[in-house]
């Protein structure tokens, strides 16, 4: 599994020391090209981020006059104050509600389905079909189906509500979640299931009492990944809501930039910083979990 692999690989230098280094270290030329490209791209990644942070601390008039890469002599938080007054706390709350409202059901449903698929070990035709269906869902660009989703949401009279964002997001998150979770449930030793069965535990009890706690790291990983997808989602909020007070953060960003304050570049960039700040904080706290989560579904 990728997650276990990543953490294992990351620990390697500590356990095997110099011996575990790249074999050719002593005699071979260093990887100049790789190093060059990596450092170059690091600069490409960091320069815009550095720029938005320092620019968001400048006043609008200062922005036009100063060198773009020199931090302001008198940093100001006025831009942030303006952005917060522009209802960004509300948009933040909306994003949070949609993320939590999506992640909890999608992960619980996916876990139950993954458990059933693994435990039936292909013996049940219905579950085999369900599994292939979810695999197919991975290959199809689900965004191509947004117009029927839009129609469905209107017919259900959910248009312009946060629920309208949550329901399709749950469905879109399921295929990958089931795939990743079933891989981890498959790693639980069969003997443990057997002993639960001998103790007379029901499948329901085995599911929550054994499989769920044993695969908690995977559950956390999948939850983080889904939360990030929803948090950053743009298309669904764009087509399924219209009132300003139903906006999620990415939509609010675009609206702010396209609106009357759009000419105030430092304020626009302050809004960008504000939306990425919570994720950056989460990233510094749970980096390993997050990175392994992002590749868990795809790594070889």
């Amino acid at each position: 599994m990728t997650t276990t692999h990543t953490s294992r690989a990351a620990k390697r230098p500590a356990t095997s020391g110099a011996h575990g280094r790249h074999p050719a270290k002593s005699r071979q030329r260093p990887n100049w090209l790789g190093g060059l490209v990596s450092w170059l791209w690091l600069a490409v990644v960091l320069i815009p981020i550095y720029w938005i942070v320092i620019t968001s601390l400048k006043t609008q008039s200062n922005y036009y006059l100063t060198n773009p890469f020199v931090p302001p002599g008198d940093p100001t938080l006025d831009n942030y104050r303006l952005v917060i007054e522009m209802d960004f706390p509300l948009y933040f709350l909306n994003s949070l509600i949609v993320a939590i409202g999506t992640v909890i059901p999608s992960v619980l449903f996916s876990f139950m389905a993954a458990y059933a698929i693994v435990r039936s070990s292909g013996a049940n035709r219905f579950l085999r079909g369900v599994n292939s269906l979810f695999l197919m869902g991975l290959a199809i660009p689900l965004q191509a189906t947004v117009i029927p989703v839009y129609l469905l949401i209107i017919k259900m009279q959910l248009y312009d509500s946060l629920t309208a964002l949550i329901l399709p997001s749950i469905a879109f998150a399921i295929p990958l979640s089931v795939l990743v979770l079933s891989n981890f449930i498959r790693d639980v030793p069969k003997e443990l299931f057997e002993s639960m069965r001998l103790d007379g535990a029901s499948e329901w009890k085995t599911l929550w009492g054994l499989a769920f706690p044993l695969t908690r790291p995977a559950v956390v990983t999948v939850s983080i990944y889904n939360a990030l997808q929803v948090w950053n989602g743009f298309l669904l909020p764009l087509i399924l809501t219209q009132s300003p007070d139903k906006r999620t953060l990415p939509l609010a960003l675009a609206a702010f930039q396209g609106g009357p304050y759009g000419v105030n570049v430092p304020a626009v960039l302050a809004s960008v910083v504000l939306t990425i700040l919570p994720i950056l904080i989460l990233y510094t706290v749970g980096r390993r979990q997050l990175l392994s989560g992002l590749t868990a579904g795809f790594g070889k």
Binding site: P105, S106, L108, F109, S110, M112, A113, Y115, A116, I117, F126, L127, V130, L133, F134, G137, L142, T145, V149, L152, L167, P168, I170, A171, F172, I174, P175, V178, E203, W204, L207
Partner: peptide, 14 residues
């Protein structure tokens, strides 16, 4: 039955 909630959610909105 355990796979049903995921299946229903996926079926309706995907």
């Amino acid at each position: 039955w355990l796979a049903l909630p995921a299946l229903v959610a996926f079926a309706v909105f995907a």
